[in-house]
Design a protein around this nucleic acid. Structure first.
Lengths: 206, 206
DNA sequence: TTGAATTAAACAAACGTTTAATCAATATTT
DNA sequence: AAATATTGATTAAACGTTTGTTTAATTCAA
């Protein structure tokens, strides 16, 4: 089977699922935009739901965080900054897949729920290690790690999900993905870094 | 027309839209759960989309934030704490409507997009006033207000949207709304307050 | 008796999926 | 080397459901 055709379907599906949601984007939509026959999607992936699973698995990538974690030459503060850079870039350049993951929990299938939860848990463990390491080195103070990670992910999510709101707030033209990213990504990075520095700094311990 | 019946439909629709998403919950679903005839929904609201609009408008409530803003007897710090309490309670006791608003942007209609953006903008203006007021009083430092509000909303959203993830993280039984709220709400409040105190405190100005 | 509320039934359209036929290319046999 | 068989890729068409909405008849209260 033509692997690039399969790949092409995945790319189109990612865009459409991200834009319209899983139920909102029809198999016919995807086939039409990918310029493939409708039946090819069942043929390649088995079902619409399996297509989503393939999509999620393709994007799950933990290696960068794991490498960052093992690197002893980088200070905890630098690691935090790199995590912020990594996530802002990753999420903002894959707005679609992130939207999908965020709303995957309501899209029926237990398979999908488990898969997305697994991906999130695995990423979380990596970040948790960075924070606890900084705490051991008496650089970070004690914080609610689970919710601190939630704050980072939530802030980025908010900026990607509530795009319409921020477009209207910052007078960015609607629909221009690149303009939005260029404007928001640096701003998001410096905000999150500043926020985390104040939040984690052991000097601000109460 | 029976106003309480209309109200009952709205309540059921809110729950179902929140659980399954706008496309995921069918009009038949709603009618069945509300124990009304299918045609009554078109009769009362005109269409499924108009039903969603009615739902959103019903929940838009700015009065509390406006009152808080005008109150001169409360310090900026206390106002921040009250905003946190207000939003955590409001969102966590209306998980459904919040989920709807979060994903409303992708659900087609421009009407809905405009409506949700309007609601968010109005709430944002109120919070912005509280922060700038604290800055004028030399209590808060200079921050990226737009993204700081995004952080608060995003963190709460994350906890409500990624419920499956937090359930598995904290070993909370799946599907129990009350248990989740009781466990997460206080924790969320204290995390956000701590976070904002470090973030806003003029003593942490760089 | 008038007008709104309520109903069961039907509507066309869209949904995800399956089918059976055809195409193209490779492998096998003559 | 030519003819045949086999295989996977691709297609148009149809499948049975489900979708949101409308219709036309009926019930109910004023």
């Amino acid at each position: 089977m033509a692997a690039d055709k399969r790949e092409h379907i995945l790319e189109v599906a990612e865009k459409l699922f991200g834009d319209k949601g899983f139920e909102g984007a029809s198999v016919r939509d995807i086939a039409q935009h990918a310029k493939v026959n409708l039946a090819m999607i069942s043929y390649y992936f088995g079902s619409k739901e399996k297509l989503l699973e393939a999509l999620l698995e393709r994007r799950a990538n933990y290696t960068i965080l794991e490498a960052l974690n093992k690197d002893e030459s980088i200070s905890p503060w630098e690691k935090i900054d790199k995590v912020v850079d990594f996530y802002v870039d990753k999420i903002m350049s894959n707005l679609c897949i992130h939207n999908i993951m965020q709303q995957a929990n309501r899209s029926s299938s237990e398979e999908i729920k488990k898969l997305t939860t697994k991906i999130k848990l695995r990423n979380f463990e990596q970040i948790k290690k960075i924070v606890t390491d900084g705490q051991k080195k008496k650089v970070f103070r004690k914080v609610d790690i689970e919710l601190s990670v939630g704050t980072v992910m939530g802030t980025i999510s908010q900026v990607t999900l509530a795009r319409h709101f921020y477009n209207s707030l910052f007078n960015i033209e609607e629909g221009n993905d690149d303009a939005y990213r260029k404007k928001m990504a640096p701003r998001l990075k410096s905000h999150l870094k500043q926020l985390l520095h104040a939040h984690l700094d052991i000097k601000n311990e109460e």
